[in-house]
Design a protein around this nucleic acid. Structure first.
Lengths: 217, 217
DNA sequence: AAATAATAACTAACCGGTCAGTAATTATCG
DNA sequence: CGATAATTACTGACCGGTTAGTTATTATTT
C-alpha cells in the first residue's frame, strides 16, 4: 500500500494515518514496544521519521491508536453477538471463546496482548490504557454470559471472574507459546486439538449436567 | 550481603559471583532482559560496572548463569520427587503442579519465564537456552507422570503433551497476570481459589473415574 | 615488588523527538 | 491560460540522552 519505494516525494495526507497504523502494528508486534524504532515504522510506511510525528505525537500515542483500530472493533463484535443471541448460555460461551481464539489466531493481533504483558512493568501507562479499553470490556462480556448461565442453572455456581480467567488462560498461553518458544520446539502441538481439548474439559467442568463423556482429546 | 555501601574498595573474589547473580536476578525480573542495565546490577551488588564483566563475559552469559542457579535446581527437585514416589499418579501430578505453583509464587522466580516469553523474539539465543535447559526438562517430567497414569488406567487416554500444556497454562497465566495487569485491576483474584479451582476442574477432566462432585470454586 | 581485584573514564552505537528547510500543491493575479 | 505567490506535507540532519562493553589506571594483597 505505501506507494512504490521509488516514488520520490508524495503528499498523501489522507492515506498516511492508515498506512502508518498498519506499519506500526507490524513492527510493534514483531519487536515489542521498547525495541520498536520509529525509524523502522516510517521506513515500512514509505515515509521519513519526521512524518510519523506529524500524525502521532509520540510512540505511545501511536501505539494507543493501533490498539483502538486493530483490537477494539473485535470487542464490539463480541458484545453485539452476546446481546443478539438469546440462545443457550453454554452455546454462547463456546462461541465467544471460539471467536476469541480465532482473533488470537491472527499472528498480528496475537502479538498485542503479548506485548502489553511483556512491557507492562516498564510502561505502566500503556498497561493502564490497555486494561481500561480492552481487558475490562472483554471480561465484562464473558462475566455477563457466565452469570446468565448460573442464574439459569445451566452452569454450576462459581466465581465468574475466576472462571473467566480459567477459560481464557489456555488460549492466551497457547498464543504466546506460538510466538515465543514454539520455534525452539521439535514437538509441535496442533492448536486445533489443543483448543478443542480445552473447551471440552472446561465445559465439562462448568456445566451443571455434563454432556455425555467424549474422551479427553 | 553486598557489604556496606560506604566501604571504599574491597577485594572479595569468592563472594562476588553469588552477589552478582542475586543482584542480576532482581534487576532482570524487575526490568526484563533488554531494559536491564549492567550498571544497575553492578550498583546493587555494590560494585562498579567493569567488575561485572570481570566475572561474566556478557549480559547474556550473566543471564544464563542466573537461570542455572535460580531455576534449574527446582527441576532437579521435581525429578527427584517423581522418581522417589511410587504413589498414585494422580496424587503425584497434583503434588508436582502444586510445587510448580509454589515456585511461581515467588515473584523473583515468576519473573523468569515471563522475561523469556516477552523477549524470545528479540533474543533467540536466550530463548533457545531456556527451552533446552528448562522447558524440555520440565515437560519431560510431567509427561512421564501422565504416561504412567494412562498406562495404569487412572487417567483417560489423551495426548500427554497437550494435557501438560493445559495443566500449566493457568498457573503460568495467573503468574504473568500478577506481574503485569493485576495492578490496574480493582477486582483482585485470590490466587489460592484460582489454583484450587483449576486443579479440581482439571483433574475431574483427566481422571478416568472422576472423584465425587466437589462444586466448582 | 609482583600479581591481581577493582575502578572509572572512555568508546561507539543507538534512538526518540525536533526543526529548519524543501518540494509539491493550491490560490491569486495579470 | 500562464506565471508566481502562498501554503503545507514532508524530509533528514541533528541533539540530548542512554548503554554494552573496553581499557588504562589504582589499590590491595602476599
Amino acid at each position: 500500500m505505501p506507494a512504490p519505494p521509488s516514488a520520490p516525494r508524495q503528499r498523501r495526507k489522507d492515506a498516511r494515518p492508515a498506512e502508518l497504523l498498519a506499519a506500526a502494528l507490524d513492527v510493534f508486534v514483531e519487536k515489542g514496544f521498547a525495541a520498536t524504532r520509529m525509524d523502522e515504522i516510517a521506513q515500512r510506511a514509505g515515509v521519513s521519521k519526521g512524518t510519523v510525528f506529524l500524525y502521532y505525537e509520540s510512540k505511545q500515542a501511536l501505539f494507543r491508536a493501533v490498539v483502538q483500530e486493530a483490537v477494539v472493533p473485535h470487542l464490539a463484535a463480541g458484545e453485539a453477538l452476546a446481546e443478539a443471541a438469546d440462545s443457550d448460555p453454554a452455546q454462547l460461551l463456546r462461541e465467544l471463546l471460539r471467536r476469541y481464539w480465532q482473533v488470537l489466531g491472527d499472528a498480528r493481533l496475537a502479538g498485542i496482548p503479548k506485548l502489553v504483558m511483556a512491557e507492562a512493568g516498564n510502561f505502566p501507562e500503556v498497561a493502564a490504557f490497555y486494561h481500561e479499553n480492552v481487558v475490562e470490556r472483554g471480561r465484562a462480556l464473558f462475566i455477563a454470559v457466565l452469570e446468565r448461565g448460573i442464574q439459569a442453572g445451566v452452569f454450576r455456581p462459581c466465581n465468574p471472574l475466576v472462571i473467566c480467567h480459567l477459560a481464557i488462560a489456555p488460549l492466551m498461553f497457547s498464543c504466546m507459546w506460538r510466538q515465543t518458544l514454539a520455534c525452539c520446539d521439535d514437538r509441535q502441538i496442533d492448536p486445533e486439538i489443543f483448543v478443542q481439548t480445552h473447551l471440552d474439559m472446561f465445559m465439562r467442568g462448568l456445566l451443571a449436567v455434563p454432556a455425555g463423556g467424549r474422551n479427553v482429546e
